[in-house]
Amino acid sequence: MPLFDASSGVGEFLTAFADDEHLIGSHHAWWIGIAPFLEEDLAFCSIAQDELGHALALYDLVTDDIDQFALRRDRSAYRSCDFVEMVMPDWADTLVRHWLYDTAEHLRWEALADSSSVEVRGIAARALTEESFHVKHARLMVSRSVQSEQARNIVIDSLQRLLPHSATMWASVAGEAEALTSGVTTMSSEQLAEQYAQALRNDVNEWGLDVPIVLEPTGQSHRLERHHDFDDFYASLNLVMDLDPTANW
């Protein structure tokens, strides 16, 4: 028996985070072998592996069969946000999403560091040690790349396009209320969204980027609908499993 029922409020809340980690890790992984230079290839691929590891740890709290749950659930049962479902075959978009996502992810884990659940606390503590590297990496690479004008314009263009999508990370699932009252998490998405915007403002100020950080309210999507990129990802994820769904792969 898993620790939390996936259909409970807390289960839904943890599933949303797990799905985000699973999807971002998978999309980051696309860059293996083709990142801008080899040293960066190794660093970025490591981040992809870490995010998948976080997904595994979180899925493990809500299911006994991680692969069936992570790969073969009905698409309507996923709770990932638009921002991680988007396919980004462009390095600037990928780099900016990495910075935005990890800035947010770090805050999300911090909110779990004092969880009422000892299991959640343990996972958060471990994830935070990896996250500090992710945030450092993202901030360093963005800050170094905006020092030339051409690259600065490329990064600013990505940031302006992606910032509104990034707000979907703070769309809360209905189960968040239960996660808060039970103390499994200690901060609401609304509170975290404010910290997120402030962290981004600090970064753009430090780097001298003239981009106003305004997060439009994301509405009550509850993460119930999938981005149009999701279907291809879902099919690609199941390509092998579909050959023999009952086999041990």
Partner: peptide, 12 residues
Amino acid sequence: ETRWFRDAIEVS
């Protein structure tokens, strides 16, 4: 397509 990034890092 990723050349702009290598160039930017080099400038820094």
